[in-house]
Write a protein that binds this DNA or RNA. Sequence first.
DNA 1: TACCATCTGTTAAAATATTAACAGGGCAAA
DNA 2: TTTGCCCTGTTAATATTTTAACAGATGGTA
Lengths: 223, 223
Amino acid sequence: MVKETQNLIKGLPHKTIERLSQYRRALLICLEKGKEYIFSHEIAEIQHITSVQVRRDLMLIGYSGTLRKGYNIKELINLIGNIIDSPGGINVAIIGMGNLGRAVSKYLTHKRQKLTIVAGFDINSKKIGNEILGIPCYAPDEMKQIVEEKKIGIAIITVPATKIPETTKRLINAGIRGVLNFTPTPVVVPDNIFLEEYDMITSLEKVAFFVKQAMIEEEENRM
Amino acid sequence: MVKETQNLIKGLPHKTIERLSQYRRALLICLEKGKEYIFSHEIAEIQHITSVQVRRDLMLIGYSGTLRKGYNIKELINLIGNIIDSPGGINVAIIGMGNLGRAVSKYLTHKRQKLTIVAGFDINSKKIGNEILGIPCYAPDEMKQIVEEKKIGIAIITVPATKIPETTKRLINAGIRGVLNFTPTPVVVPDNIFLEEYDMITSLEKVAFFVKQAMIEEEENRM
DNA sequence: TACCATCTGTTAAAATATTAACAGGGCAAA
DNA sequence: TTTGCCCTGTTAATATTTTAACAGATGGTA
Ligand SMILES: NC(=O)c1ccc[n+]([C@@H]2O[C@H](COP(=O)([O-])OP(=O)(O)OC[C@H]3O[C@@H](n4cnc5c(N)ncnc54)[C@H](O)[C@@H]3O)[C@@H](O)[C@H]2O)c1
Ligand SMILES: NC(=O)c1ccc[n+]([C@@H]2O[C@H](COP(=O)([O-])OP(=O)(O)OC[C@H]3O[C@@H](n4cnc5c(N)ncnc54)[C@H](O)[C@@H]3O)[C@@H](O)[C@H]2O)c1
């Protein structure tokens, strides 16, 4: 990729990155259906956002559509791939092959060519040394070695919350580059490791709050 | 709750709501450890944010701490509860008791007093009529009836992506108030239903993007 | 007592993110 | 070929969110 393009990409807003990932998924589905071109307002409708936002995002990545025809789906998919994906792909490990870890493994396997789950880690001796859902499983102590050997760049954390400190320590020591934490306990990593945390209960409580508010407002309007 | 407080709460930013949920969880852990008061900078550190942000959020909900002592943990937990929780609680249903649906069920059960999973829905005839992880399981066609009977307010969607249209239709018809969608396919619901969508692949691709960027920058710095 | 360090609460400023507004181009129908 | 419509691309305006700055209060300390 040319230097200029790389400069464009560098300052991309986090929100735009998230939306690009979502655009791509929507586009892949459209492509499968045999669609060749798509309008910004069509993408917008799928994603519940405005067409302006779509056009703005695409402007930011320097992609131009064809007037009156819209955007070439295949081209756009490739461009988003150039931005998000690493050319050689990135290998991923799941830390904690419990209920969530297994569900995630199953879900992610073969979903994205450029992201491959190549290892799981667990303390359960029945799991260590065996494959779970086709993924070889290792002991946490082997982490540094396996991460290096298999060139693992990203870890998804699904261990019990109490195991976060030791798990974090091992991941840092192993030289991991990015972490996605599904545990409700925030993890602490140095700046050079990219960290994304997601907590289901926060989402659920957010929904609960707005449902409550809607009910209160209805109540008020009735009076 | 007095009208005045309700007005304060009404315009609370989405981001503040999310953080309040997270503060509460952190506070509950502190309380368990026997801590009575906490400083804004302590909360901030746990959540990887700044203490200003914490104080600002607490200002928005009208809570005042004690100078030099910080915030009373028990009081704050209760206040956040008043804001987020509905007095009578809200019942929740899981739509699609597969890998993710079961993992979520297990995770959420007994995590929050005010949010109770009271039903699961699935098309698998082996599941219908039985309990899964203590949760009674019903056929999708029974949704309207069960939602009314059990006063279910929120649905968590974990069905295969292809089943989103029919599932959405049933949920709307059943009079659901809030939806948390874990499927990668965006759902379409009327405005009066609060919708939150979370997509794991987006999170993972976001991590992948920033890991890639960090590697490119390292590369550049070496030159 | 006077001073210092520390923490809260709030206002002001800055940074991000979204939306509005509109110029410009191309196709199609009249 | 002219008019109108419907797209894109971009700049300007607005809204939201975060951060900075600082006044005020309290308690410890010299
Ligand atoms: N289940 C869910 O849907 C869900 C949702 C959101 C968050 N979470 C969080 O994800 C985590 C896992 O949840 P779960 O339901 O899969 O629990 P689980 O008990 O089924 O799985 C945890 C797994 O981690 C393994 N483990 C324990 N210590 C370890 C260590 N030090 N290193 C590596 N592996 C270790 C255990 O052997 C087990 O297999 C929890 O922190 C939970 O809060 C779960
Ligand atoms: N597994 C994960 O970790 C994960 C992560 C993120 C998102 N997702 C998404 O969650 C969804 C479920 O994933 P999964 O791994 O649990 O799949 P799964 O196949 O294990 O579970 C799906 C369940 O839904 C049931 N079902 C099918 N049609 C239904 C209908 N019309 N009404 C009610 N139930 C119905 C099926 O019988 C099955 O039990 C998928 O859309 C997937 O994309 C999964």
